[in-house]
């Protein structure tokens, strides 16, 4: 139950959405883009979100696009996690999506919502970071495509009135060797203790993390250490873990010490799995 009131708007084109946002703002309102709505509804119940107008982007055709061509995969941000999982165009992303929440919730949670949400795990971002994807953003100045590394730094960096339309990635990445591991405190449903996505481009190992810090990230320094193939795996992991962007999380999912233990083991599993595959 949302205890405050808002108006609901359902634009059918990008332009309409952007204009709506601007005009609502001019009327002194606080509009918010609305995709799956799951986070907006559940957090506003706890007064952690406020809006007096919501703009549902699910009915914008571009946001629902699913195009796979020879060299590019285009995913609309309003696709549900279930759709991403079941179409399986990008197996690593499909795997990451399939581990979030539970299936019924995934019928509602969207890709864009997961990337832009407040709940800081944002696990679908990990594969997107690994494949250097591009993000299509609509805003006052029209529609533009920008590298994810530019617009996603810990969280999505948008100007007021901007929203995510699509995510694009080079098809060459889709079939590269990869692993996704989500470790929970206990059981098969729930937030991650740590989640690691990894992809191998040639000999280069790429890794992205969630649950380790209060934001998902990919770190060149961490990757440099993990790729220091002249060292034994243990040492590579130890050095890599000294390069985390922030001290490791310490919260109700697990203490910092224990997380570190789990993260080490997870990295070990990932490195051995991907490097064993080489032989």
């Amino acid at each position: 139950m949302v205890s405050f009131d808002f108006t609901y708007h359902r634009p059918s084109s990008i332009e309409e959405a952007v204009q709506l946002f601007a005009s609502l703002q001019r009327q002194g309102k606080t509009p918010i883009y609305y995709s799956g709505g799951t986070e907006i509804i559940t957090l506003s119940r706890l007064n952690l979100v406020f809006a007096d107008a919501v703009i549902d982007i699910k009915h914008i055709p571009e946001c629902q696009s699913f195009d796979i061509s020879q060299n590019q995969l285009v995913l609309g941000t309003a696709l549900t996690l279930t759709a991403i999982e079941e179409t399986n165009a990008f197996p690593l992303l499909a795997k990451a999506a399939s581990e979030i929440a539970d299936r019924t919730a995934r019928n509602q949670i969207t890709l864009g919502g997961n990337i832009c949400g407040q709940i800081f795990y944002r696990e679908t971002v990990l594969p997107l970071l690994l494949v250097d994807s591009d993000i299509v953003i609509a805003g006052k100045s029209g529609v533009q495509q920008r590298p994810i590394h530019e617009v996603f730094q810990q969280s999505i960096q948008l100007q007021p009135g901007e929203f995510l339309v699509q995510v694009k990635m080079n098809a060459a990445y889709l079939t590269m060797p990869h692993v996704h591991m989500k470790r929970r405190k206990q059981g098969k449903v729930g937030y991650p203790l740590v989640t690691v996505s990894a992809l191998k481009k040639g000999n280069e190992l790429r890794t992205a993390f969630s649950g380790v810090c209060p934001f998902p990230f990919r770190s060149p320094k961490v990757e440099e250490m993990l790729n220091a193939r002249h060292l034994p795996i243990d040492a590579r992991i130890d050095y890599a873990l000294q390069q985390l962007p922030e001290p490791i999380l310490d919260d109700i999912e697990g203490s910092a010490e224990y997380r570190l233990f789990v993260l080490k083991n997870t990295l070990w599993d990932i490195l051995t799995e991907l490097e064993e595959a080489e032989r």
Binding site: K185, G187, V189, Y191, I252, E253
Partner: peptide, 24 residues
């Protein structure tokens, strides 16, 4: 898996099924 988790002021940190996960 079931327990309340308290902070140092004895406030319950997980009064939701999301973070108090029963067996499924």
């Amino acid at each position: 898996r079931e327990t309340f988790l308290f902070d140092r002021y004895e406030r319950v940190l997980n009064p939701q099924i999301r973070t108090y996960q029963p067996i499924r």
